[in-house]
């Protein structure tokens, strides 16, 4: 397995995308106090992607995750898909930028928190524009707080997982 500048490793991307959709399904069956609160389990796959994929592969993974979730939850052609799209895209970009610019000064914990926060803020702004107007802010605090807690735990898990996984180590840029 070789680092960047090489052909897109379709199999790795497909595996991570499948992992993301699997986690997404698991998340779907976990009961939540409000249906629009998310744990963001699928982002575990995205975080793994940040660590070991090239930019091109990562973009492909993110697109697959967004489309896959849309199909899986049946929201692809509804306005709810806009929320998914906005949240996933913004957090994917922010997480990648943070990882690339901070390198060893940040772990998946920080990446996860920032990603979840940006995703939630974008979705609240969308809710403000599309659905509820100013009142959307009333819903903001519980969403942001549960998002913070969930992303913190997920970040710790992702960091621990990525430090131990041999599969990931063998795919890191620079490994042979």
């Amino acid at each position: 397995m070789s680092p960047s500048d090489h052909p897109v490793r379709v199999r790795d991307v497909a595996l991570l995308a499948a992992f993301a959709l699997f986690l997404s399904t698991i998340e779907y069956v976990i009961p939540k106090p409000l249906p629009y609160m998310r744990i963001g389990l699928a982002n575990l796959a995205i975080m793994i992607g940040i660590g070991c994929l090239t930019m091109k592969e990562y973009s492909l993974l993110v697109i697959l995750k967004i489309l896959g979730q849309g199909v899986l939850h049946g929201t692809l052609f509804s306005y709810i898909f806009l929320f998914s799209l906005g949240g996933s895209l913004s957090s994917a970009v922010v997480m990648l930028l943070l990882y690339r610019s901070l390198r060893n000064r940040v772990s998946m914990v920080g990446i996860s928190i920032a990603g979840a926060f940006v995703s939630n803020i974008v979705q609240i702004l969308l809710a403000r524009m599309l659905l509820f107007g100013q009142a959307a802010w009333l819903i903001a605090p519980p969403f942001l707080i549960t998002g913070l807690a969930a992303s913190l735990l997920l970040g710790f898990f992702a960091q621990g997982f990525m430090e131990r996984s041999r599969w990931i180590a063998s795919r890191m840029p620079g490994s042979s």
């Binding site: 943070l98 901070l102 060893n104 000064r105 940040v106 772990s107 914990v109 920080g110 928190i113 920032a114 926060f117 605090p141 942001l144 707080i145 913070l148 913190l152 970040g155 710790f156 960091q159 621990g160 430090e163």
Partner: peptide, 20 residues
């Protein structure tokens, strides 16, 4: 053992301050 890195703490703090 997992240890938080500097930027993790900064990000966590900023988030908490904004939410509060």
């Amino acid at each position: 053992m997992l240890r938080l890195r500097p930027a993790d703490l900064v990000i966590l703090l900023i988030t908490i301050v904004i939410i509060t």
